[in-house]
């Protein structure tokens, strides 16, 4: 399945004049969600940037039906909505659109519960690596070394690997995606939409305000995260794992863009650019990330190329 840009639906899925900051990755991502899934979608949005991006009632800047819900309850509210639609005999995609805090921190319990129950919903974590809506505070998904307003000298811990945790839940579908690669993200959403059960997509969403970069560079930074090997793109479907085609070349460390190219675009890393030992720690994180990827590949690749068939069938 290849996404043809010219054939994507041309509808205002994000309403112009919404309250997102210039260069916002979340509004980019939301457009792709509906380009991929169509109109038969209900969004559940917990507290976060996307609750504010909608703008001021009685208008909403996101062209979806939306149930806004308290921070910790997105996955459970979505479970209930799906159950209701099923009882009514309606086939509706119930999609959670939650930030990294709403996913990996305060909403984690509800997410884990819904994943374990294999609720028939699509959960998208739009990961901008901190509490941006409240003013750039660290979350468990903020990466090592990043400045935030609660980690003034840089975060001392590494990023929590939520998609790997979701694979461990035994859910049907897990994928990582980046707003820098819309076609890849759309393809993944379309594949996910054909599967029943709990589906999780972790979307990297570089935030110009919180990461301190030029708002024109959102796509570029999102691509560099992949090209440096920091954020590998992959899919896991029902026991089969594969690296996404655009990310495969970065399996080879020599083909990766040096991580400093990524770091130096972002003010949040300014304090560590001339500290080689700090950069080394980030490089080690990349190496460990790929060790895990290789383990997943080895564990979840089945003989006889069945893996590829699984993907091609969708």
């Amino acid at each position: 399945m290849v996404v043809n840009i010219r054939k994507l639906p041309d509808k205002p899925y994000i309403m112009p004049g919404n309250a997102a900051c210039p260069g916002c990755p979340e509004t980019m991502g939301l457009r792709y969600v509906k380009m991929a899934l169509g109109d038969n979608v209900v969004l559940v949005i917990p507290a976060g940037c996307s609750s504010v991006i909608q703008g001021i009632a009685p208008r909403s800047g996101i062209n979806f039906p939306i149930l806004n819900i308290v921070f910790a309850a997105a996955a459970s509210a979505a479970s209930g909505m799906k159950a209701a639609f099923e009882q009514q005999g309606k086939d509706v995609h119930v999609v959670v659109w939650a930030g990294d805090g709403g996913t990996g921190d305060i909403g984690f319990q509800a997410l884990s519960g819904a994943a374990e129950r294999d609720e028939d919903i699509i959960y998208i974590c739009v990961d901008n690596e901190a509490y941006m809506n409240t003013g750039i505070q660290r979350s468990s998904l903020t990466p090592y070394g990043a400045w935030t307003t609660t980690t003034w000298t840089g975060k001392k811990e590494h990023k929590k690997n939520v998609p790997a945790i979701l694979i461990s839940h035994g859910v049907k579908y897990v994928a990582t995606a980046s707003v820098g690669y819309p076609a890849d993200f759309i393809e993944k959403l379309q594949r996910a939409s054909k599967i029943r059960g709990f589906r999780y997509i972790h979307l990297l969403a570089p935030c110009p305000i919180g990461w301190r970069f030029d708002p024109g560079l959102t796509a570029k930074v999102a691509q560099l995260a992949v090209q440096t090997g920091l954020f590998p793109l992959y899919e896991y479907i029902n026991g089969v794992f594969r690296l996404s085609p655009i990310a495969r070349r970065y399996k080879d460390p020599k083909k990766r863009v040096p991580v400093t190219e990524y770091l130096k675009l972002q003010g949040r890393y300014k304090h560590l650019l001339n500290k080689p030992e700090e950069i080394r720690k980030i490089e080690e994180y990349i190496e460990n990330t790929w060790r895990l990827i290789e383990a997943l590949e080895k564990t979840f690749t089945e003989e006889g190329g069945r893996g590829e068939q699984v993907f091609r069938a969708l």
Binding site: S76, A77, S79, S112, E116
Partner: peptide
Amino acid sequence: IRVESEHSALAAVYGAASA
């Protein structure tokens, strides 16, 4: 829906009611 907490229990039925 056999949820993992009361916070989720009310959120789930609230979601269902909203739908």
